[in-house]
Amino acid sequence: MDTNQLVVCGGCNAKIGAGNLGPLLQDLPRRESPDLLVGFDGSDDAAVIRLRDDLALIQTVDFFPPMVTDPYLFGQIGAANALSDVYAMGGRVLSALNIVAFPEEQDFAILREILRGGAEKVKEAGGLLSGGHSIHDRTVKYGLAVNGTVHPDRILRNDACVAGDHLILTKPLGVSILTIGYSAGEISKEGFQQAVDSMCTLNAYAMDIIRDAAGVHGCTDVTGFGLCGHLHEMLHGACSARIDTSRLPYFEEAYWGAGHFIFTAGGQRNRDFLEDKVAFERQDFALEEIVFDPQTSGGLLVSCEAGQAPMLVARLQAGHIPASDIGVVTEKKEKEIYIG
C-alpha cells in the first residue's frame, strides 16, 4: 500500500449504535440549568447554551477513522461532517478545534494533509480554527470540536415535527456503500467520486436557504444512524412517517452495490435497532440497505409545513442543492416509519 495513504475503516460507519448509546447516557450525573436549551434530554445534534436573550452558543464534537485513503480528502470530509451539527441546529459556525489520533510510527506528512483539508473546510465555513488536541493511537482518527451561534428563538431541534409536515432531504443516500465498495474494488471511480463530492459539500449552503424559509419546524443531519435512524429521532415517539421511495434521492451505483450485497456493519446495526419500527411495503433489499446505510457528512433532513414545502424545495434546487420532498409526517400509527 502507498505509505501516503490511509487505511479505510470508518467514517460515520464507526459510530456506536443507537441501541447501545441510550442506556449508557441515562444515568450520567448532570447539573440542571435554565440556560441549557438543548442537552441530554433529547437526541439532538448539538448542545445549545443561552448566553443572553438574543444569543446562544452551539457546542458539538465529531471525529472518526478514515473512510477514504487520501489524507487531504479525509480531512475535508471529517471537518465537513463535524461542522454539519451546527447547521443542523440552524446555527452559524464560530470556531473549531482539531481532534487528532495518529500512529507514532506513521509519516507526519500524512497528518499535515489531513489538517490542511480540515482547515480549508473550516475557512470555507467562515470559522476560526484555533488549535486542538492530538494523541498517538494505533489508528488514525480526525474531527473537530465546533462552536456556533444561534438566536435562542430560532433553534432548529430534531424533535419538533408535527403531523402533516413534509420531509425534505438535501443530499443523496448511499455514501458508505460507495466508499466501502470502492475500497473492495466493486464500485467505480466515478461512483466513488460522487460520494466524495457529496461528503465534502458543507451543509452551510442548504441551511442559508432553510434558515430563512417559512414553516420549518425541525431539522437534523443524516449521519451514522442512516435515514431511518435519524428520522426515528425526529419523530420523537409522537408521530409516524411515510417515505415515498419514488422521490428518495440516492446514488444509483450505491443501489446497485446494495443489490450485490455490498453493505456495512453500521448499516446492519441500524437495521437491527429499527427492525420493529420500520415497515417496507414492497420487497426491495437494495433499497432497504440504502435507508439504513450510515451517512458520513450526509444531508439535512427538514420537516416543513406542507404548504411551504414546494417553495423550499424549489429554492434549494435553484441553489444547486439536490433536495427532494421524500415523504410526510403522520399521526402515530402501529409502525413508526412506512417505506413504500
Rank of each mutant, 00 (worst) to 15 (best):
G148K: 00
I135K: 12
D137A: 15
L129N: 02
G143E: 06
V140D: 10
N147F: 08
S130E: 10
V146P: 07
D137G: 12
L129T: 06
G127M: 04
L129S: 00
N147G: 08
V122R: 08
L129K: 01
S130F: 12
G132N: 06
V146Y: 02
T149V: 14
E120L: 05
I135W: 13
K141P: 02
G132Q: 07
H133D: 05
V122N: 11
V146W: 04
H133P: 11
G148F: 01
E124G: 00
A125R: 00
A119E: 09
V146I: 09
L144K: 03
T149H: 10
K141G: 09
A125E: 10
G126V: 00
G148P: 08
K123I: 03
A119R: 05
V146E: 05
K141A: 11
G126S: 03
S130R: 13
L144F: 09
H133R: 15
I135A: 10
K121T: 11
S134R: 10
A125M: 08
G127I: 03
T149N: 09
K121V: 13
K121D: 04
K123M: 03
G127L: 08
H136F: 15
V146K: 03
K141S: 06
G127Q: 06
E124A: 01
D137W: 15
G143D: 06
A145F: 03
L128H: 14
L129F: 04
G148R: 00
L144V: 03
K141D: 01
D137S: 15
A145N: 01
L129D: 06
T139C: 03
L128D: 15
R138T: 14
N147L: 08
N147E: 08
G143H: 02
L144R: 04
E124H: 00
K121N: 07
V146Q: 03
V146M: 07
V122S: 10
A145D: 01
G131V: 15
K123S: 02
K121G: 11
V140C: 12
R138G: 11
V146T: 05
V146R: 02
A125T: 04
A119M: 10
Y142Q: 06
N147W: 05
S130I: 12
L128W: 12
E124Y: 00
S134W: 05
G143Q: 04
G148A: 06
G143K: 01
I135S: 10
N147T: 07
D137F: 15
A145Q: 00
G127K: 01
V140H: 09
S134N: 03
T139K: 00
R138L: 15
L129A: 04
L144Y: 06
K123R: 13
N147P: 02
K121P: 07
V122T: 14
K121S: 09
H136I: 13
N147A: 11
